[in-house]
Simulated assay, not measured.
Amino acid sequence: MDTIPPLLDHLVLATPDLAATVADFARRTGVAPAPGGAHPDFGTRNHLVSLGGASYLEIIGPDPDRSPLPGGTVFGVDGLTTARTVTWAISPPDLDAAVAAARDRGYDPGTPYPMSRRRPDSTLLQWRLTGGDSAHPSGLVPFLIDWGDSPHPAASGLPVTPLLAVSATAPDPAEIRPLLAALGTDLLLSEGPVSLSFTVDTPHGPVTFR
């Protein structure tokens, strides 16, 4: 199978210390991630790197300019002790149709809900995505995202580290594969502790993040 998942929109590298992880990424790859923006309702901020084509990497962590939120931050970044790749997203051609099709196939990815943030140039980005309580606890089953009329982050002149491969391990890969199939995507899976990793091409050669 292809080592890059079909419909991949972005990978999520979550961290308890955004500045430190961005600096580490730049040191290891020779490519400095670009500031993305803040998520005011969730207490997080991100930096972005294009993975080539219509995919990108989101490095997300607590926003140092905001107090922790009572309900916790997205992707559990406030509970992490080290940076790790926690999940990924796909962008089907029709989000609502993809959700309905997945439900018909026995997997409910959740009801899409809206989010937004402003880029450093003040452009407002608005999108819908699935997730929340319905997300698979492993993070290995992607959430779905629809950027609507907003410019896609990968098309905004980001620095680039071309994606070479994505892979994962799970205690029971056979439990994950039907859920991926229900969403119309796939992931190179083998048996092991829950883990998601990706490899990018860089001026320093291939670099793998987990």
Rank of each mutant, 00 (worst) to 15 (best):
P171F: 11
G71H: 09
A154T: 10
D65Y: 03
S167Q: 15
W127P: 00
P5L: 06
P35F: 12
S167T: 15
S91G: 04
Y56W: 15
A100E: 12
D172E: 15
P120G: 01
L163C: 10
D172I: 15
T15W: 03
S134E: 11
P68T: 01
L158Q: 04
P120L: 00
L57P: 11
P92F: 00
A168W: 12
S138V: 08
F143R: 04
A135N: 05
R117A: 03
N46S: 02
S195P: 03
R103N: 08
M115W: 02
T199N: 12
Y56T: 07
L80C: 09
P6H: 04
G205R: 02
G184E: 07
A181T: 15
T82H: 12
I4M: 05
P70W: 01
G43K: 03
L125M: 04
D65F: 03
R177A: 15
A100Q: 10
L189P: 05
P114H: 01
A98I: 02
V74M: 11
L7N: 07
L11C: 10
D9W: 07
A38N: 13
A155S: 15
V31K: 13
S195A: 14
S138T: 13
S50F: 11
H204N: 10
P70F: 00
L80H: 06
T111V: 02
D201E: 15
L129G: 03
D78E: 06
D65R: 06
A168R: 09
P178E: 12
T73V: 01
L18Y: 07
S91V: 00
L183A: 12
T123R: 08
G53N: 14
T21D: 06
F143K: 06
G43Q: 03
L180Y: 05
V166C: 11
S55A: 15
L163T: 13
G30P: 09
P193L: 13
G184W: 02
H152K: 14
T111G: 00
V166S: 13
L129H: 01
Y107D: 00
L95A: 03
T202R: 07
R128D: 00
G139R: 00
T82L: 10
D104M: 06
G43H: 03
P35T: 11
G157Y: 09
W88F: 13
T3F: 05
F75L: 03
V200G: 13
R27P: 08
L188M: 11
G132A: 02
G30N: 11
L13I: 05
